[in-house]
């Protein structure tokens, strides 16, 4: 395959991604606008700004960090899809990692790009379908299902289940670089037990990359 073809594929993905991101932003904002126009009501700007002031310092900072941290891992197509469909750290990224592991491809290869995009697109479609079916077809029974005493422990433990399953194979394969970041994060959590997921992720990723880089420079990995 020629370099030109490869380049043009990535360029095309970025063009589609840019268009779809801007369109998604417009579509997302059309939702509250449609509500305003349909009911002919316009909320006080002060109230909206007050609400935004509570969210923006955290959420917009997290957005910058997430874009920088996740983009290299998700690949081009996966990045645009993930940031539109959300639930990245708890669903899209683990799904992409799992798929790339299963297919035995590297994240920074074109095969990795393809596999990651297919995995994330599938995940987005399945999530959308589950939510749509749940909301539209089972609305009357939904609460009973998701809040049933029987299933509640499973929903409460979805993250340990997900990351335990994902981590098992990964830690065995990369055990040398796994100890340092986990020890760092446990120490961090001992002193700051309520640290938000995004901050902890950032600390974990920085510790992990620096630890691995040091080991690489020393020739240990």
């Amino acid at each position: 395959m020629s370099k030109k073809t490869e380049k043009s594929y990535f360029d095309r993905v970025h063009s589609w991604g840019r268009i779809s991101s801007v369109t998604a932003l417009c579509v997302l904002l059309m939702f509250p606008l449609s509500i305003c126009l349909y009911y002919n009501v316009f909320p006080p700007i002060n109230g909206v700004l007050q609400g935004l002031l509570k969210l923006i310092p955290t959420y917009w900072t997290v957005a910058v960090v997430e874009v920088i941290v996740y983009t290299p891992m998700l690949g081009a197509g996966g990045t645009y899809l993930s940031f539109v469909t959300g639930n990245i750290a708890n669903l899209k990224l683990p799904c992409a990692i799992s798929a790339m592991e299963g297919a035995k491809v590297k994240a920074n290869s074109e095969e990795g790009e393809v596999v990651s995009t297919i995995a994330i697109a599938t995940s987005a479609i399945v999530t959308t379908a589950v939510l749509a079916i749940g909301v539209l077809a089972f609305a009357p029974f939904l609460q009973a299902f998701t809040e049933s005493a029987l299933l509640k422990p499973a929903f409460a433990q979805v993250l340990p289940a997900l990351f335990g399953a994902l981590g098992a194979g990964y830690f065995i394969k990369h055990w040398r670089i796994s100890f340092f970041p986990i020890i760092v994060m446990i120490i961090v959590l001992v002193f700051a037990p309520t640290m938000g997921a995004s901050t902890l992720l950032f600390v974990g990723i920085v510790a992990s990359v620096l630890g691995a880089l040091l080991m690489y420079k020393k020739g240990w990995i």
Binding site: L201, G204, S208, V209
Partner: peptide, 10 residues
């Protein structure tokens, strides 16, 4: 390393 940082955090 990035993946391990992410998984390890959770």
């Amino acid at each position: 390393a990035i993946f391990i940082g992410l998984i390890g955090a959770f």
